[in-house]
Design a binder for these strands. Structure first.
Lengths: 202, 202
DNA sequence: CCTACCGATCGGTAGG
DNA sequence: CCTACCGATCGGTAGG
């Protein structure tokens, strides 16, 4: 019953974002409501309109926050590798790591294209994270550890693999815990990496 | 305005399933309502209760139908290959083919764990489709074209790859059309296949 | 950022 | 399988 209200000073937007993530995480897209978000934030059901024109725009903001964190997580992961081939695997592990750490963001980013007003941002911002992956592929090509040619199919294949791992892991379809999931990701990306290296051509 | 009503003879259940898929496809999970389904089926908003206790159970039925079709699609695809290695790739292509052909089923199957009453069925039924993939891996191991050992990690990796391709393709994230997507899937699975074949160990 | 207030829709029950 | 009917909730507007 006792609620502190530090958001009266201007951080309501951040509080709303947090509440939105928690709500969509607990009840799913269907249970997500602007009124319930406001309720959890401790404000009137009308206050959110000061910051977002609709529930969809709130979710869009959550997605954008997620894409930014995803990019950062991948960039951080990539730093742990010296060879481009290793960095490619590490970027994939970063991708899965992000999904495991912020599953609700991940869900909003990829499961709610319909809810978002205009997912035109998904391109640009999403490209930031994808760019990390593309960079690794191009570096590996320059190193000669990946075959020359159009890097796009190689990158899309790597993306598909880790996206699948992330999706299945988050939904609980993989028969292992979070730690094992990262080990599995490393193994899986290593196998793919071997295949890409020995590829005839793109 | 003029509606034919053949479902008064007992096929209302099938009509409801069809309407449910169309609805969730058009408006997403959030717009899915038992009343709207009934409306589209041309019956009173209460008629669906004769067949389903809730909207979640209707969606569960859709998911089960989907898992069955997925298994059939994969089994059909696998028949086109002689060598186990080829069949493994073909099963993956069948997976993606299914997702492209019935994207709404695919979405219900994997994006709505929360909506479903008890997704205990996702294991057994889903295992039917996964079993096809596992069978290919085990056959390839017997053939000697895949390294011996626990087939599960190999199968999970293959599953992850095609699941990722399917997810990204359905959401429109892959920069290509449906036909190209299948070609891409064949390419990607070929690369992975090469990697798995040259793997040190599982 | 809040208190009314609106029309619309929903899930579910009653009773047939 | 249908017609009422219920309480609850929602998005959005008015007006401050």
């Amino acid at each position: 019953m006792t609620e502190e209200k530090p958001y009266h000073h201007g951080n309501l937007r951040a509080v709303l974002l947090e509440a939105a993530v928690a709500l969509v995480g607990e009840r799913g897209p269907k249970g997500f409501t602007l009124r319930e978000v406001a309720r959890r934030a401790g404000v009137s059901h009308n206050a959110p309109y000061r910051h977002f024109a609709s529930g969809g725009e709130l979710l869009l903001a959550v997605a954008e926050e997620g894409f930014e964190r995803l990019k950062e997580t991948m960039e951080l992961a990539v730093r742990r590798g010296a060879k481009a081939q290793d960095r490619l695997q590490l970027s994939g592990c970063g991708y899965v790591e992000f999904a495991l750490r912020w599953p609700h963001h991940f869900a909003v980013m990829f499961d709610l294209p319909r809810e978002l007003p205009e997912n035109c941002e998904k391109g640009p911002t999403g490209l930031g994270a994808f760019g990390v992956l593309m960079g690794c592929v191009e570096d590996a090509q320059a190193e000669g550890t990946l075959p020359a040619g159009d890097p796009l199919p190689l990158a899309l294949t790597a993306w598909s693999l880790v996206h699948g791992v992330a999706k299945l892991a988050v939904s609980g379809a993989l028969p292992m815990g979070p730690e094992r999931t990262l080990e599995f990701t490393w193994q899986a990306t290593a196998w793919l990496s071997t295949g890409l290296r020995n590829a005839a051509s793109a």
